[in-house]
Design a protein around this nucleic acid. Structure first.
Length: 498
RNA sequence: GGCGCCGUACCCAAGUGGUUAAGGGAGCAGUCUGCAAAACUGCGAUGCGGCGGUUCGACCCCGCCCGGCGCCUCCA
């Protein structure tokens, strides 16, 4: 009945989405390696798949969403060594940090969040199965996957084995049967964390954990496998090879990859040092966490998930401006204005149409920018109707539609009285060299409390009553300097916002 | 070197083989207002990197070129 189309990296085309078992969707997304704080790139991936999961649920699918933690790896070991702490201290700390960041971002918990180290048995079993089929082979304490055993290798990333060797930059281990063979199991060096196995003490290679966890929790074949597009090769390619060789079945049916976050058009990454952690964005951005979260999400969702997105202060300001327009309307809607009897039939049609257009956008490979455009159109429409006289019940219904559609995106969920507009100061010239007025850093909730604002507004109201415009404007200026913008309404009342 | 992606107005960003190429931000003008703010109205790409080709017709299909990016090594 639904017409959801999903771009499948495997076919490089949009395909009609039909889950293997009607009514349920099983989705696996590669999470993070917990050796450090998460950056905006991780946030994008998390938000994208959070929205995909929300939308699938909106379509009444029962979603089993698995997102793993890679909690054993070279970088974790190195970090633990540097700090002289057990590796569990490192992974525990960054799993906590991850959960803190996700909660701030409004990213919901996955159904299951398995850890690699809790699936060593499954991993060992999987490797054994591959060895028995002579697809994997031990080399001393290590075990490698023999890549030529899987003829379809390269199907996802559209690479051919012989072409890759020409450009291979890695040093070839002579003991490997094929230069591209990769490790399933790594023997432990003295002092390294390890688990027992038929090949001696060691730890799993990177790719095998995802195969093991996905198969364990979702079955040998499941619906969606996702992650950042930088995981397409080699990670996902290797996952497919291992899994399909072991089970003889198709691994994942739809491969979904999000585009990367760039800074000045360059990939944001640890190695380039050009990254912003989620934590520092929340700590530095001049707004409360729920407001910052929506601004970040709005920014992230205003570009299609497969395109690259460039991060900057300006981009964030544009996102905030867009969101401010919505919350401005929400405030006015909540003020209510019983002016007119509801025109039921036509109005219901309007509400249905907007909800439908959001669904149509999302059905088209989760086209969040188009969904936002629909909502912005609706915002403008409601503003016009409000101007013409909207009944308060109609206003409430409009609000309900915004919040319900917004739920899919994780937007419009902040109570409008808590929204922070952060644009109070209107005094001062605009810098002609900038195509944007400078951001005025205000909006610290602690700077002025509500009763103080009410007192000043009352004072201004009296000044206005006696046409003492100088005094009235001075009060407004004072409020502006403390981060409060005011608006006089037609009925003589005055509202304010931070 | 191999593979892949992208290039739409000042900025961000959808989109379609053929009616006026969404939407937002910023800007300008107007309505409203004591002044502001908000909102509303109007203005803004004769053109979708460039050149060819296919077609009755292309921004959308194909080829080449230019520019940018990603992967090929840990990476969301």
């Amino acid at each position: 009945m639904n017409a959801l189309k999903v771009f499948n990296t495997m076919s490089r085309r949009k395909e009609l989405f039909t889950p293997l078992k009607a009514g349920g969707v099983r989705m696996y997304v590669c999470g993070v390696t917990v050796y450090d704080e998460c950056h905006l790139g991780h946030a994008r991936s998390a938000v994208v798949f959070d929205v995909i999961c929300r939308y699938l649920e909106h379509l009444n699918f029962e979603v089993t969403f698995v997102k793993n933690f890679t909690d054993i790896d070279d970088k974790i070991i190195k970090r633990a060594e540097q700090e002289s702490v057990p590796w569990q201290t490192v992974t525990g700390r960054y799993i906590d940090a991850y959960h803190r960041d996700m909660e701030r971002l409004g990213v919901r918990l996955a159904t299951l969040e398995p850890k690699a180290t809790e699936h060593v048995n499954e991993i060992v079993t999987l490797i054994q199965a591959l060895i028995e089929k002579d697809i994997a082979y031990p080399v001393g304490p290590d075990v490698y996957f023999h890549i030529t055993a899987f003829p379809r290798y390269g199907a996802l990333s559209k690479r051919k084995l012989d072409e890759m060797q020409a450009g291979a930059r890695i040093e070839v281990d002579e003991r490997k049967r094929h230069p591209m063979d990769f490790a399933l199991w790594k023997g432990a060096k003295p002092g390294e964390p390890s688990w027992d196995s038929p090949w001696g003490a060691g730890r799993p290679g990177w790719h095998i954990e995802c195969s093991a966890m996905a198969i364990r929790h979702l079955g040998e074949t499941f619906d969606i496998h996702g992650g950042g597009e930088d995981l397409i090769f080699p990670h996902h390619e290797n996952e497919i090879a291992q899994s399909e060789c072991a089970t003889g079945k198709e691994f994942a049916r739809y491969w979904v990859h999000n585009g990367l976050v760039t800074i000045d058009q360059e990939k944001m990454s640890k190695s380039l040092g050009n990254f912003f952690t989620i934590r520092e964005i929340f700590e530095k951005f001049p707004a409360s966490a729920p407001v910052t979260a929506e601004i970040l999400r709005f920014f992230l969702l205003s570009t299609h998930y497969r395109s690259p997105i460039d991060f900057s202060d300006k981009a964030l300001r544009q996102a905030r401006a867009g969101l401010n327009n919505f919350y401005d309307l929400f405030k006015r809607l909540e003020e209510g204005s019983a002016q007119r009897l509801p025109g039921k039939a036509e109005w219901q049609k309007v509400l249905t149409r907007i909800a439908r257009s959001v669904e149509e956008a999302m059905d088209d490979d989760f086209n969040t920018p188009a969904a936002l455009a629909s909502l912005q159109k609706f915002r403008s429409d409601v503003n016009r109707r409000l101007h013409a006289g909207l009944s308060s019940s109609e206003g409430q219904e409009a609000l309900g539609v915004f919040r319900k559609c917004g739920q899919i995106l994780g937007l419009f969920q902040v109570p409008s009285s808590d929204w922070e507009f952060g644009q109070a100061v209107v005094a001062g010239p605009t810098d002609p060299l900038m195509d944007y007025p400078p951001t005025v850093v205000v909006s610290s909730k602690a700077s002025i409390d509500d009763s103080e604002i009410e007192r000043l507004l009352e004072e201004r109201q009296q000044a206005r009553a006696r046409k003492d415009w100088t005094r009235a404007d001075a009060v407004r200026q004072e409020l502006a300097e403390r981060g409060i913008a005011i608006e006089d309404r037609a009925d003589g009342s005055t509202t304010w916002k931070r």
